[in-house]
């Protein structure tokens, strides 16, 4: 069983937090290196799956969850390197590790007997697009939370330490790279939205097409479609407000948080509470 392989990156992710206990800048580098090593393992496992099964729709829950975790980590690593905000890894990695653990513990069962009747290329594209979009929104969610807390600190002028360059405190170590500056956090949030929105839009369009081809009717009103459209609408409004009216800062961050919570809700809603709504049964 390949599932046991998931435990290697999980272990690396968990162990990566131990060096942080030493509150030393060098240890911070060890933390980042261990997380990259974990991601490298995840990527290796991903390519092992590709070599065994080829480019196919993940039909088992554990593979699906693994794929989700890999895309999320891939996007976070890319953004972390590009914007020099490696501290985001600190907050995202536990989510990725949790995903991998879920992947390890869930049974290795088929999830889409109904879905397999539809066009597999479109189905795969739908999944990939939605996962990329959702991962970008997940990053925007984390970055928005950091923004909200940091903005609150600056506004209230409480617990706001001036950056000590030669210090070895954990807080200071986490400031290396771009630091928690509001402008950068807001910019990352915007980039995630700008890139993620087309992905999610195309993903939803394909989902509706797939749903239509299943039920032989276009836009049969299902709860999952309504939820998806509400989520899409929230992000559409956010993008519009950002581009047209210059919405930014705390309000934009709150929008991002709300949008992602709705995504989480709609996913749980569709997969766990009412699997039939997502054409799973």
């Amino acid at each position: 069983m390949l599932k046991e392989l998931y435990l290697i990156p999980v272990a690396l992710y968990i162990f990566s937090y131990i060096p942080l206990l030493f509150k030393d800048k060098k240890m911070y580098k060890v933390f980042v290196s261990l997380i990259y090593a974990g991601f490298a393992f995840q990527t290796l496992i991903f390519f092992i799956f590709l070599s065994i099964k080829g480019l196919t729709v993940p039909v088992h829950i554990d593979r699906f969850v693994f794929f989700n975790a890999w895309i999320l980590m891939f996007i976070v690593v890319l953004f972390g390197l590009f914007y020099k905000v490696e501290y985001v890894l600190l907050y995202i990695t536990p989510l990725v590790a949790l995903n991998l653990l879920i992947g390890f513990f869930v049974p290795h069962v088929h999830i889409t007997p109904v879905m397999l009747n539809v066009n597999k290329t479109i189905l795969l594209t739908h999944i990939v697009l939605i996962l990329i979009g959702d991962s970008l929104f997940a990053l925007a969610f984390i970055v928005s939370l950091i923004y909200i807390f940091q903005e609150r600190k600056i506004k209230n002028k409480k617990n706001l330490k001036l950056f000590d360059k030669k210090g070895i405190q954990l807080k200071e170590a986490l400031h290396s790279g771009g630091g928690y500056n509001l402008e950068l956090l807001d910019n990352i949030n915007y980039q995630c939205l700008k890139i993620g929105f087309p992905f999610i839009t195309l993903g939803i369009v394909m989902g509706i097409y797939l749903s239509g081809s299943l039920s032989r009717t276009f836009m049969a009103v299902k709860p999952i479609e309504i939820m998806s459209l509400i989520t899409w609408l929230i992000y559409a409004i956010l993008l519009h407000e950002r581009v047209a009216k210059g919405l930014r800062g705390k309000r934009a961050a709150i929008f991002s948080v709300a949008g992602f919570l709705l995504i989480l809700f709609s996913l749980s809603f569709s997969f766990y509470l009412f699997p039939a709504f997502h054409g799973l049964k």
Binding site: Q150, F163, G178, Y180, N181, L182, E183, L184, N187
Partner: peptide
């Protein structure tokens, strides 16, 4: 200056 760096990138 340090404070402004908390707001601006």
């Amino acid at each position: 200056v340090e404070l402004s760096k908390k707001v601006f990138n």
